[in-house]
Computed example of a mutant assay.
Amino acid sequence: MKKNAVVIVEMGLRDGLQNEKHVLDADTRVEFARRLITAGSKRLELGAFVSPKWVPQMAGTSEVVSKALALQKAGDLPKKMEFSVLVPNERGMMDAIESGVKEVAIFAACSESFSLKNINCSIDESFERFKPVMALAKKHKIKVRGYLSTCFGCPFEGKVPEARVVKLAERMNKLGVYEISIGDTIGVANVGQVESLFKKLKKVVPVKKLAAHFHDTRGQALANILEAYKVGVRVFDASLGGLGGCPYAPGAAGNVATEDVVYMFQGMGIKTGLDLQKLIDIYPWMTEKIQHTLPSKVGKVGILKPLGAVTPS
């Protein structure tokens, strides 16, 4: 990665859509992916192999993956695109292998209460579920990304101890994941927490393997991203328009908006590889598809256009 560059991992198709009341069909989701790729996205999470009974918005993920890979094979999408899917267990991993995708993501919580609410098992039990997933990944040469949720606070337990987050990050790293995304699931983090936690995490996990995943519930996401950047993090999760939220985190707002993040970094002279105007152009299309406005600031108002020459009167 270049010194003055960051990577944005697009969450809109999975974390972004999983809490939306209006469910999008596979073709619309593939079109969403195509538009994001046209805007420069290189890493997209296409969906999740979870039970449609619990997360109906993710039904049809296999179809989305199949169509996206077919477009890629036909040359209609870039060959270097990195598509991934979320898998909760061995069953989900088998579905991912069958789909042909070459990257998956696993997830664990830093709060026992949230783990039980979200995936119906304890934190230790969730790590036991990862073992067959990692074995299958190794056998089929599939990359694995790891998520840790509720790293800064839990909707059921309140503040989460930093020491627990660090311990779990170290544990996940030892599993063999190539990257660990540190998540502020309910958007409770502040700059002080971000600085403190990531400095501790860097001591047990190389900073190049750390990513940051902030929700914007309290309007702190951009400030937190900037602080994580100052500490050395260079990979950030975001969602077009600020889509998102978690079905198991009451009151949590969506992910930080991709276009807001790009606007900030672009103003700092830091490259993202994304075309800001093309991202903004997706905003009205997506609001129409999900049938409500989205919280993105830049998506709503756009960017300041240069004024033309003014003729004196």
Rank of each mutant, 00 (worst) to 15 (best):
K2F: 10
N4R: 15
G12A: 07
K21G: 07
H22W: 10
D25L: 08
D27R: 09
L36Y: 03
L36I: 03
R43H: 15
E45I: 08
E45V: 09
L46R: 06
A48R: 05
F49R: 04
S51E: 04
W54P: 13
P56E: 10
A59W: 14
E63N: 15
V65K: 03
K67W: 15
K73W: 13
G75R: 13
D76F: 12
L77A: 06
P78A: 08
P78V: 08
K80V: 14
M81Y: 08
E82I: 12
E82D: 12
L86P: 01
L86K: 01
V87G: 07
P88N: 11
N89K: 03
G92C: 00
S99Q: 02
E103M: 12
E103V: 08
A108F: 11
C110A: 10
C110N: 04
C110V: 05
K117V: 01
I123R: 00
E128N: 15
G146C: 11
T150W: 14
F156D: 03
V160Q: 04
P161W: 09
A163D: 15
A163R: 15
A169L: 07
M172A: 04
M172I: 03
Y178F: 14
E179M: 13
I180S: 00
A189K: 06
G192T: 11
K203H: 09
V205D: 00
V205M: 01
V205F: 02
V205A: 00
F214Q: 02
D216M: 00
Q220V: 14
A223P: 02
I225L: 14
L226K: 04
L226M: 07
A228N: 05
Y229S: 10
G232C: 07
G241I: 01
G244I: 04
G244K: 03
G245F: 14
A252Q: 07
A252V: 09
E259H: 02
D260A: 00
V261T: 10
M264P: 13
K271A: 06
T272P: 04
T272R: 03
L276C: 02
I280E: 07
Y283Q: 13
E288K: 09
I290T: 06
I290C: 06
S296R: 02
V298Q: 00
K300V: 09
G302Y: 10
L304Y: 15
A309W: 11
V310E: 14
